[in-house]
Design a protein around this nucleic acid. Structure first.
Length: 522
RNA sequence: GGUCCGGUAGCUUAGUCGGUUAAAGCGCUCGACUCAUAAUCGAAGGAUCGUGGGUUCAAGUCCCACCCGGACCA
């Protein structure tokens, strides 16, 4: 079922939404990229041949206008923005395999090829229609009365609505209503979580309007490859420009793109579900191309209970968040706090609490105490010992971890983390229950002591591997202190049982998750 | 205006087909321990389950209305 690469390794092509190049990256962007990266890293630990796509949506009137306002050419403007996004993704440790920009020549050619393909296969799917209305440049859309207050768009009150009459290419989306309803009914997992699927089914039941595929006065765009009957050539409208990035990134229409397409997973925000579940599959169907396997719509992060927005000044400086305890800690806390299937909240206060309780006190200190005892009682070399009965309880947690991570019940990354946190807590409980420091005082109980400490080291090693997708750098520091061979990220997550710490030379170093500096008075 | 999702202890959440004293983590309080990053372990306290009706022997769980938050569509 899963396509295989030449080495017979399961292939996994996942994408994130391309971000609009009209502003700097924010917390919402980060949540999606971090989540996708965790999935990508998890699949790699499972041995998959993963391809993670990230990118920028760089066309449109808004970009053009903002660039003009800053007095730079649109391309130079988006070049700078794309650079800033990539810099943040690098700092966050996002292991993307490809960064696509819709201004790339190949993408533009791919968009045009897709449109031509649709027009060839279904000549009736594109048609001309004229349209009159009030156009908001901010939204890049015509607005209805309900969205207009005092003659201004409610979303962009600072901009002037323009009365516009124009003739455009339209795409016959309405034709695909039955196809889409059938898709969602016969393939329920096409869009998850289920709540989003229900939303789409409701939307489909209301009927679909055709959508415009080209726009006049859209200069900063991919030229729409079909001329209107009056000879005019227009710019390709956002859907037909942005959505195909997932396809053009594979090389489409050049030979060989089928090796990667269709995508296994599109990760998107819940606000753009409709575009990915209705418009995109319709476009692909019209072109006779395979559909992606699944669309996953994650929720939004709020900041301290408020929806963040540039205008309201509610925002979080990503650089500051990374500086606080490092990118890994931020990644951990964000995904622990925000359920990946629904909305969540993030605040500095919760950040501190989570970091301190989960990472410094629980996991970091567990490693610290276990390593210290191996040094003290066994001269730094982990003794060989059979696994104690108590350790078997971890098996259920590992199963819970995979259930959250493998997509079988949705991409519930927060549940994966919760399972590891329970394993950590259990290891601390085990330490308190077995009191190795007391056992160490009785030479006759050396074997017992060996078993306890070997168990602790093994647990920490296993937890490190499970945490590797979330904290790729920090976990290696722990791994090194354990004296474990290779890297945590280089382990096979399916072979955790084979991890045996006997003979590892531990070395206590700096705390990997130091406690925050005492009273950080602001 | 319409559709959908959510509203459970101070905070974040779990609560499967309605059924015994509504669960967990964090925080707070008390106790224990000392290997460890003043960490850890144990215990206790803490919830009119958004509001108001209704169905039922029994509702956080079903139905209706409303309030609040969110997404989408008009």
């Amino acid at each position: 079922m899963t396509p295989r690469s030449k080495h017979d390794v399961p292939r996994f092509y996942l994408t994130t939404a391309i971000d609009y190049a009209n502003g700097d990256p924010h917390l919402g962007h980060a949540l999606e990229k971090i989540g996708a990266d965790v999935i990508a890293r998890y699949r790699r630990l499972c041995g998959d041949d993963v391809h993670l796509l990230i990118g920028m949506d760089e066309h449109g009137q808004k970009v053009q206008q903002t660039a003009a306002k800053e007095g730079v050419a649109p391309q130079a403007f988006t070049d700078a923005i794309a650079e800033r996004f990539q810099a943040i993704w690098a700092r966050l440790g996002i292991s993307y395999d490809q960064f696509i920009r819709t201004t790339e020549p190949h993408h533009k050619a791919g968009v045009q090829a897709l449109i031509r393909l649709i027009a060839e296969r279904n000549p009736d799917d594109f048609y001309e229609r004229s349209y009159t209305g009030l156009y908001c440049v901010g939204c890049e859309a015509f607005k209805q009365d309900a969205d207009i207050v005092d003659g201004k768009c409610v979303l962009h009150a600072t901009r002037t609505l323009e009365e516009v009459e124009e003739r455009n290419w339209f795409f016959r989306l309405s034709k695909y209503q039955g196809f889409l309803q059938n898709l969602l009914t016969t393939n329920p997992s096409f869009i998850e979580p289920e709540s989003r699927r229900n939303e789409m089914l409701g939307l489909l039941a209301q009927g679909l309007e055709d959508i415009s595929a080209s726009r006049a006065r859209l200069d900063w765009a991919v030229p729409f490859p079909l001329a209107l009957s009056n000879g005019e050539t227009q710019g390709t409208y956002v859907w037909f420009d942005a959505l195909p990035n997932y396809l053009t990134a594979t090389g489409f229409p050049d030979a060989g793109y089928e090796a990667r397409w269709p995508a296994d997973l599109h990760i998107i925000g819940k606000d753009i579900t409709r575009f990915h579940v209705v418009i995109w599959p319709a476009m692909l169907e019209a072109a006779g191309l395979p559909l992606p396997k699944q669309v996953w719509a994650h929720g939004f992060v709020q900041l301290g209970g408020e929806r963040f927005s540039k205008s309201a000044g509610v925002k979080l400086d990503l650089g500051e968040a990374i500086d606080r305890y490092g990118a890994d800690a931020f990644r951990y806390v964000l995904l622990r706090e925000v359920p990946f299937d629904s909305d969540g909240n993030f605040s500095w206060e919760r950040f501190e609490e989570r970091y301190t309780s989960d990472l410094a006190n629980a996991f970091g200190n567990l490693a610290s105490r276990a390593i210290a005892m191996v040094e003290k009682y066994f001269d730094g070399e982990v003794p060989a010992a059979a696994r104690p009965e108590a350790e078997l309880d971890d098996d259920a947690e590992i199963a819970a971890y995979h259930a959250g991570m493998d997509g079988s019940r949705g991409w519930l990354l927060h549940e994966g983390l919760a399972a590891v946190a329970r394993m950590t807590a259990r290891a601390n409980e085990y330490t308190a229950a077995t009191t190795p420091w007391a056992v160490a005082k009785d030479p006759a109980r050396a074997a017992e002591l060996a078993q306890i400490l070997a168990s602790l080291i093994r647990r920490i090693a296993r937890q490190s591997v499970l945490l590797a997708p979330f904290m790729p750098t920090k976990v290696e520091a722990v791994w090194a202190q354990l004296g474990a061979p290779g890297t945590a990220g280089g382990q096979r997550i399916t072979a955790l049982d084979a991890l045996d710490p006997a003979g590892w030379r531990v070395q206590k170093g700096e705390g990997v998750f130091p406690r925050p500096a005492p009273p950080a008075k602001a």
